[in-house]
Every structure is written in structure tokens, then in C-alpha cells.
Amino acid sequence: MAILEIQHVSKFFGGLAANSDVSFSMEEGMIMGLIGPNGAGKTTLFNCITGYYPPSKGDVFFKGRRMNGLQPDKVCKLGMVRTWQKVRPLGKLSVVDNVMVGALCRTNSLRVAREIAMEQIEVVHLSHKADFLAGGLPIGERKKLEVARVLATKPDLLLLDEVMGGLNPSESEEIIRLILDIKARGVSQMVIEHDMKTIMRISDRIVVLNSGEKLTEGSPDEVVQNQAVIDAYLGESHA
């Protein structure tokens, strides 16, 4: 069964179509790569899927349930949660408290939440920083914290918005391993990423957006050989 199904989603800001008539579906357990040049509408699509914007047209189905108009907190409770391109640590709370906020989505007990939080911090290798204030972490660790925090909400589908942006190669490698590890645990993921090499490596399927429209969709090998994708990325005069 498709865990996520997007049907003819459009989002207009005034006269500008940030997304227009985007449709695709995503199987459970897979990693779906979402790529496209700057301004292609990737983050807008995330916002439409997770309830930050209602889509202007079209429908979003998650686990067979129509999601349009649901607020982000409800979306999270149903098992779909996103990270932010620009990280949003809860600065004056410690690392473990940040992750506990995520965990409290599933429990009312602080003790249970703390246990879940410590587990997830362990998963992203931040245990040694558990009591540090989130606001003081370097960017690489903030990105990891972001991932730990969403994992603590026990999601079925994770939407990662450029979790590797601004990281050095070794930090990126760590995140890649983390994403594959999350996949191994059966959590579906949709990943926005700019680095083509990375996205080719981790994705089971890739959707390419350009100027708000879906350009193509397919396996990494198909996408990379698609002439329309090459044109969109390198300009039409190429080749």
C-alpha cells in the first residue's frame, strides 16, 4: 500500500504557482528522493504535505487518509513529521529536553519521554552532549538533534529537508548512514537534497521538480539519464 499519495497538488502564492499539479505516490519503507533546482517548490511541497499550508488544489493521502486541512500537530500525531531546512533547535532547552518534546507526542510521562529521548540521542551519536543547551551546538550537531527529535515522535514517514546542507563530507557521511539505518528500521523517508551523488546513493526512487511542476520520476538510474533533468540542471544549451 502506498504510504503517501499526492494527487494533483497545486499551491499558488498570488499569481505564482509554487507547485502545480504535482502527483506521485510513495511505497511504504522506501526512501524517496525529492530533487530540483533552487525554487523548484520542494520545500513548499513539504509544507503542503505536513499541514503548514493547505494545498490550493489537489489532495494528500497519508496511509489512505485525506490530510488536507489537518494542522501540523495532528499530522505529527498520525505519524508523519518533517525537519526544517533551517534548523530550529529549542535554544534554551538542553539536547535531551529538545528530544523529550518530540517524545511527549506519544506519552504523558516525563520518565518514559526521557528514556525515549536518550535512546534517540544515542542513535544520532549525541549522548555526550545530552545536557548541553541546544542553542550552543555547532551546525552538524544541530542537524543530528533535529533528526533525533523527529525520530522521538515515532513516525512512520519522515520528511527530511536538506539535513546535509552545510555539513562537511564526514558529517554528511554520518547522516547518510543514519538515514539508511532509519530505513532499516522500517521508517519511510522522503528526502530533499541538493547533492546528486548522495541522493543517487540513498534513494529508491526519485521525483524531480522544476518550476513547481513534476519533471519526471523514476529510479536513480533512469532519472540521471533523463534528458529533461539534464536540461533543467545544466541548461538547455548543454550537449
Binding site: T50, P72, C76, R82, W84, V101, G102, C105, T153
Partner: peptide
């Protein structure tokens, strides 16, 4: 916004 995305009404 972060709070909202983490399931807080």
C-alpha cells in the same frame, strides 16, 4: 513552528 511540527496543538 518547530513545536507545531512536533505534535503540539
Amino acid at each position: 513552528d518547530a513545536a507545531h511540527s512536533l505534535g503540539i496543538n
